[in-house]
Design a protein around this nucleic acid. Structure first.
Lengths: 143, 143
DNA sequence: AGCACTTGCATAGCTCGCTATACAAGTTTT
DNA sequence: AAAACTTGTATAGCGAGCTATGCAAGTGCT
């Protein structure tokens, strides 16, 4: 039974993700941000005041993971959590001014990281690459 | 400034890696294995008795991460660490019988997971997918 | 031989992901 | 209205990754 890690999609996916994560980590560290907060920030920059439930749905992240991430974000002054007026269970998440101000530099950092990592691919390859990953992800979401 | 997470290579890479990791986790849990040990096991199944240093180099994993992973592996009876005879600093890592016996079922599990996740791609797409990820990884390794 | 330097590993402490569990606030059933 | 169920968060505890730091074992210079 032969198995080469360098031909294994799962291994390669993990390796590549670590590389992206390390790069983004160092780029956004000067902003006082960490990678785990990024997805939540993207959603909130788009539509502020989402509930924790809505965030987990949009990001395919477990509820417990989101709760912990939001706790760190609140600790670090990026968000405030307020009880929903109509539903005493729900927590609505609101960005602070600081978080709003970080949008542009943070997105720039992410774009730079993406561009650098894909520098070895031509335009066609980049499109294919994105499309293929999306397809693999969709295979899970639908199955 | 527009930025869509679903067009961001870094975000997609992270998401895809999480999906692979969750799938493999559940598949190898019955074997008493976790994903973090998998890369080290692959190397050791191929050539037993590597040093910790050699493992970190072959897997592009930080030394501290490897030390922790090996500590868990030793705790779980997968490996034994023995001082190198010629170099009192180096630890050589040796598989236990149990770890050797797990090779075939573990690799089967990984192959099944890979196959399932790539089920939505045709043969040509699979080849392209692997090749593109390898290329992205290589961009880091060379730069 | 003695000193500084390098190398291999371990440890501390953090983020971020997960599962399992608890619990209070809603909702439905009876 | 009370009981049973569902839903939204929080917490505990673990794995896996990282940086920073410490330290003992080897190497090199003088």
């Amino acid at each position: 039974m032969n198995f080469s890690k360098d031909q294994s999609a799962g291994y390669l996916a993990n390796h590549m993700a670590r590389i992206f994560a390390q790069g983004l980590t160092s780029r956004i560290k000067p902003l006082g941000l960490t990678t785990g907060t990024f997805p939540a920030l993207l959603e909130l920059w788009d539509t502020d005041g989402l509930s924790q439930k809505q965030l987990t749905e949009r990001l395919d992240i477990e509820q417990a993971t989101m709760a912990n991430t939001l706790a760190r974000m609140e600790r670090d002054g990026l968000i405030v959590r307020k009880k929903d007026a109509n539903d005493g269970r729900a927590q609505r998440v609101w960005l602070t001014d600081r978080a709003r101000d970080l949008r542009d530099p943070a997105i720039t950092a992410a774009q730079e990281e993406n561009a650098m990592r894909l520098a070895g691919l031509d335009e066609d390859e980049k499109r294919q690459f994105i499309a293929l990953i999306q397809k693999v992800i969709k295979t899970k979401m639908s199955g």
